[in-house]
Design a protein around this nucleic acid. Structure first.
Length: 581
DNA sequence: CTGGAAAGCGCC
DNA sequence: AAAGGGCGCTTTCCAG
């Protein structure tokens, strides 16, 4: 449905300010708008008239340009009284709201529910592998035009963008993902960002001091072992010490460029030859956690809310996952003991608890659903330990006869299957010969024939269509799948195998978030969703709501979509969010 | 002083 | 020759 071109006569100017109790409130709202970005435009479907909502910081007015490139800002009356004289709003049924960034719109106005076209999401769904979906970049790609700073011009392009992108979205059968998943998710994300997460800065400051001492101590030890002082944080300087001064020899021959790598797995090998590498591993763990979390997070606590407010990007990944930044709260430590101490500094308000809910083995379950592999499906239907089952299938050892090594290897194989494994990768992971790894992979595919057939089918399909697809139809273009360059092609093949799994998991948890958010509101919970970490949701709830919330979350996460296998959800509350696998 | 690349590593 | 998918942040190092 293409709206008429902007009229070239003097436009009708209207403001949608019905939401505001007073002019003062409206002006306060306008003051928070990002400079020069037309926040939204309303399109009158009958007349083609356009109303624009929200421009720059000082603009207290609503304006519509006459022609593309000739926009003009109209300033509000100093007292704000002019607004009261504006025409009443049109009925919503006769208008469509167009925005670029729906999450931003929700953050500023609280009214994303009225959005029909979100051009940023259109752009992302069509080209999820493109890094930027800024307004200017999207306009550039779509119209080969460089936008200036004028608000009217920007509004014009916003108006042109929607009817240009929407048919493409329909053409690619992405309209359902847009309507059912990505658009309704935007206000949910905005609310999570706005709520924030509480951390205890005192605890982190305490840790910082003790970690500082520890880092200094290790640094001195390292210098002593090296026989000279150098910057331990510099891989170049460290490589000189290790490979030139101490003459240590890495086992595995790496690629030319990586010949002098000082990465953790290399240091691990080298620690058999000299005590220094192990000290560097220890040093790095503490230094990393200190600089990235312990010292950085307190600085980002919002002065008014006292909480950390991350920013979620809904258009930043190739697979459909979210990403988190400023700070990234999707990579809070948990693996090591020190890491868990950091995580323990994330706390609930007094009288409340943190509750986390995880999808367990979600990608393997999706694999079971897609492949209908009898063994995999049976294992999940019986609620078996999936790594133990794989160990049994691949190594032929029953659960009782298995040792930790069997399960560890099986787990690596299962992960490898999801990531598109190679004998080399598995061999490196397990520290075994490539031939041995190849045998394991062969054995796996002998037992999981359905998985093998599914993966082969995906490759064939992707070669034909050039895109990977999730259960719900989200796509990821993978043109390199037919590249003559083996390296590019191999990479593309792994991507083609992984993307439907990772992307479907992302779709499922997004749907669950939308449904949970709806119910929390409808059933008047005080509990809030405060974080998403790919396959995990975190809530903060009054202690008394715990049981009800657990039930609700479990229901919605498990029932989000019918798969060939049950969807497992693990729920827990505690100081560390949750326990490790 | 700023920006970007590279190395390294935190998470799922 | 490279060799498991997806991210963001910190540090070093170097160019402008």
């Amino acid at each position: 449905m293409a709206p008429p071109a902007p009229a070239d006569t003097e436009p009708v100017v209207k403001a949608d300010y019905a939401q505001f109790a007073s002019t003062a409130e409206f002006r306060e709202y306008l003051a928070k708008l990002p400079a020069k970005e037309p926040l939204a435009i309303w399109l009158n479907l009958e007349t083609g008239e356009r109303e624009t909502e929200g421009f720059g910081t000082r603009i207290a007015s609503i304006e519509v340009s006459s022609k593309a490139g000739e926009g003009r800002a109209v300033w509000m009356d100093e007292k704000g009284e002019a607004l009261n004289a504006l025409a009443p709003l049109l009925a919503d049924s006769k208008r469509q709201k167009i925005v670029h960034d729906p999450k931003l719109f929700q953050l500023l106005t609280g009214r994303a529910a009225s959005i029909r076209h979100a051009t940023q999401l259109y752009s992302y769904l069509l080209r999820p592998t493109t890094a930027n979906h800024n307004f200017a970049d999207v306009v550039m790609r779509q119209f080969s035009a460089m936008i200036g700073g004028g608000p009217g011009e920007r509004a014009d392009y916003l108006q042109r963008l929607a009817p240009s992108l929407e048919p493409q979205v329909q053409e690619q059968d992405l309209d359902s993902v847009y309507e059912k998943i990505d658009l309704p998710l935007a206000p949910v994300l905005a609310e999570i960002e706005r709520t924030g997460v509480r951390v205890d800065p005192k605890e982190l400051e305490k840790m910082s001091r003790s970690m500082e001492k520890e880092v200094r101590r290790l640094e001195k030890e390292i210098w002593k072992l090296a026989g000279s002082e150098f910057n331990v944080n510099s891989p170049t300087q460290l490589a000189e010490i290790l490979f030139d001064k101490l003459n240590l020899q890495p086992n595995a021959r790496r690629g030319k460029a990586k010949a002098r790598s000082t990465a953790a797995d290399v240091l691990e090998e080298l620690s058999a030859q000299h005590p220094l590498p192990a000290k560097v591993i220890e040093y790095r763990e503490i230094a990393k956690l200190k600089s990235t979390y312990v010292d950085a997070l307190p600085k980002l606590i919002h002065p008014e809310t006292g909480r950390l407010h991350t920013s979620f990007s809904q258009t930043g990944t190739a697979t459909g996952r979210l990403s988190s930044s400023d700070p990234n709260l999707q990579n809070i430590p948990i693996r090591t003991e020190l890491g868990r101490e950091i995580r323990a500094a994330f706390v609930a308000e007094k009288g409340k608890i943190l509750l986390s809910a995880d999808y367990s083995q979600i990608e393997l379950r999706i694999m079971a659903h897609f492949s209908k592999d009898p063994v995999l499906v049976e294992a999940f239907r019986n609620g078996e330990d999936i790594h133990a089952r794989t160990a049994q299938e691949v190594f032929g050892v029953g659960p009782m006869a298995q040792n930790a090594e069997h399960r560890r290897a099986a787990k690596a194989i299962n992960f490898g299957i999801i990531y598109g494994l190679s004998p080399f990768g598995l061999a490196q992971q397990l520290g075994i010969e490539q031939k041995e790894a190849a045998k394991f992979i062969n054995a796996y595919f002998m037992r999981y024939r359905g998985v093998k057939e599914y993966l082969d089918g995906i490759l064939a399909e992707t070669r034909k269509t050039g895109v990977a697809k999730t259960l719900f139809g989200r796509i990821r273009p993978i043109p390199e799948i037919n590249s003559p360059q083996m390296q590019l092609r191999n990479f593309a093949e792994r991507t083609a195998l992984n993307s439907p799994l990772q992307g479907t998991a992302a779709d499922l948890i997004k749907l669950a978030m939308i449904n949970i958010d709806k119910r929390l509101a409808k059933e008047k919970f005080e509990a809030k969703m405060i974080l998403q970490v790919h396959d995990e949701l975190l809530f903060e709830a009054p202690t008394r709501e715990r049981a009800k919330l657990e039930k609700l979350v479990q229901e919605e996460m498990e029932g989000v979509h019918k798969l060939a296998v049950p969807i497992g959800v693990e729920i827990g509350a505690g100081p560390n969010w949750r326990d490790l696998d």
